[in-house]
Structure formats: structure tokens, C-alpha cells
């Protein structure tokens, strides 16, 4: 039996140390993560203000609540695994990991979780300051806020698996960036980063429901601000679980075939 607790504890120690070595770049990353939703926040509260305090059923305060929840959820679900994986395939440092008797995905998971824990220390106060400045208002409940936690955890799992599966493309082409760019366009649109999905035409939303993107980010945001009633949460969770199952299969198949093609460049 593999002692996962020890492995993760040691892996956390490693990633913790590694990430704290680069405090400056950590701060810059974080600034980007906070700024993007702030821009949307400013734009949409302005639109709402000029529309007599309302735009597409969202008041100024509701826009503020939406984008602040988005800021937190995006931070919790965000990954850079595709970039990292491509780098390790291209420079050959994946070889060192392949020699170990543990799947390299666990190093990525630990890396991701550590990053979240460290940066949360900055994201929480940043959100608090923004909340003070933009005065969010949401018709939500305690139950919604509690449900946000498992829902955002599932969203993070799904987003990680989707992006890990995409990262497997590195085995076939050593330029994954192009594929990533292709992925970020629908992600930006259908995950609710551009505008709340509620503002989109019905048919676009219907399409969005069939794609994985809503379940990776928008759904936990909708739960947090009370746009999804607690009774409707199980349906969304079922969709999340279905996509997670699908991408577990995709990632393990892509991994099995990809590793065969790995040409162990350099190292």
C-alpha cells in the first residue's frame, strides 16, 4: 500500500519551499489574477449604472458580487499545468519523474494545492478590499455559501483534469501553446469570465450547459451568489461528476499513449 499521506506531505514541503523562493513572480501572477476580474467589474457596474442601475437583470451590487465571487473561484480552480507539463516534456525533466515509482500527476496536484494555499493569503484580503470599494449585493443564503465549497472543489478537479488532458498534447507536438490558446477562447466565454452566463441568449446558455466550461468556474460562482437554488445544486454536481469521469478516462488514455511517444529529449 502506497503511503499517500507521507508522499503528499513531502511533496508539499518541496513545492512550498520552491514557490516561496520566487516571491516576486508570485506577486506578479497574483496581481494579474486580481486585475482581470476588476476590469470586468468596473465595466459592468458602469454599464449597469448607465442603464438605470440594471443590466440584464443584474444590479450594480449584483455585478460586484458576481465578479468578486468569480475572482475567488477563478483563483481556486486556476491551473498552469499545461504550461508546466509542456516545459518538462520539452526540456526532458519529465524523465526524472518517470523514473520514480509514482505517477507525476501527484507532484502537479501538490504543486497546485500549495500554490492555492499560499496565494489565498493575498486573495482573501484583496477580495475584502474590493468588496469594501464596490459594495456587492447578493440574494444568497448560508446554505448556498456552504455548498460553494464542495462545488468549487469539484470545479477545480474538473478544470485540472481538462487542462492536464490538454497538456498531454505535449507528447505529440512540442508546441502546446497553440492548443491552449484555442482552449482559452471558449473557456473565457462559457465559464462566465467575460460576462455572467445569465446575460447570454437562451440558446447560447443551452449550448454552454452541454460543454464542460460552465462546470469548471461559472457554476460555483452562481451557487455562491444565490443564482442557483440549493435544490438545483445536485443536478449541477451530477454534470460536474460526469465530466470529471469523462476526463479521468481521457487523461489516462492520453497518458498511456503519450508516454509511448515520449522521446526523452536531452535528459
Amino acid at each position: 500500500m502506497i503511503d499517500w499521506i507521507s508522499i503528499y506531505r513531502a511533496q508539499f514541503a518541496v513545492t512550498f519551499g520552491a514557490q516561496l523562493q520566487y516571491r516576486a513572480s508570485l506577486a506578479i501572477w497574483l496581481l494579474g489574477l486580481v486585475l482581470a476580474p476588476v476590469i470586468s467589474l468596473v465595466v459592468w457596474t458602469t454599464v449597469a449604472a448607465s442603464g438605470g442601475g440594471q443590466a440584464g437583470g443584474f444590479s450594480q451590487g449584483e455585478f460586484a458580487a458576481y465578479f468578486l465571487a468569480l475572482l475567488v473561484a477563478n483563483h481556486l480552480t486556476f491551473t498552469w499545468v499545461a504550461w508546466d507539463f509542456e516545459f518538462r516534456v520539452r526540456n526532458g525533466s519529465l524523465s526524472g519523474q518517470l523514473l520514480r515509482p509514482v505517477d507525476p500527476i501527484h507532484a502537479n496536484i501538490a504543486d497546485n494545492v500549495t500554490y492555492k494555499v499560499i496565494t489565498l493569503l493575498a486573495v482573501v484580503p484583496a477580495t475584502a478590499v474590493l468588496a469594501w470599494a464596490f459594495e456587492p449585493a447578493a440574494d444568497t443564503s448560508w446554505l448556498n455559501l456552504v455548498l460553494f465549497l464542495p462545488v468549487v472543489a469539484l470545479a477545480a478537479t474538473l478544470r485540472f483534469l481538462v487542462e492536464y488532458s490538454l497538456a498531454m498534447a505535449a507528447f505529440w507536438t512540442t508546441r502546446v501553446f497553440a492548443i491552449n490558446d484555442l482552449y482559452y477562447v471558449p473557456l473565457f466565454f462559457f465559464s462566465g469570465q467575460l460576462v455572467p452566463l445569465a446575460l447570454l441568449p437562451d440558446w447560447v446558455r443551452a449550448v454552454g450547459n452541454l460543454l464542460p466550461f460552465r462546470w469548471m468556474l461559472s457554476f460555483p460562482v452562481e451557487v455562491a451568489i444565490g443564482r442557483v437554488a440549493p435544490s438545483e445544486v445536485p443536478i449541477g454536481v451530477a454534470c460536474q461528476l460526469a465530466w470529471i469521469g469523462a476526463f479521468l478516462v481521457v487523461r489516462s488514455m492520453a497518458w498511456r499513449h503519450g508516454v509511448r511517444r515520449y522521446s526523452a529529449v536531452g535528459a
Binding site: I2, D3, S6, I7, R9, A10, Q11, A13, V14, G17, A18, Q21, Y22, G92, S93, S95, G96, L99, R100, P101, V102, G266, A267
Partner: peptide, 27 residues
Amino acid sequence: LVMGQRNQLQWDIPVADSFELNRTVYR
């Protein structure tokens, strides 16, 4: 497998931490 390049060691952390990681990974 030892190769003349960096491989098992983690670039950013003290050597001892890399050793500890491999200790747990290899049980």
C-alpha cells in the same frame, strides 16, 4: 539512472528536501 544533467533533484529547494521526497516516494 544517473545522467549527466539535472534530473532527480528539485532545482529550487535544499538538497536535503529532495532526498526526503525520494525517501517517501521510494518508501
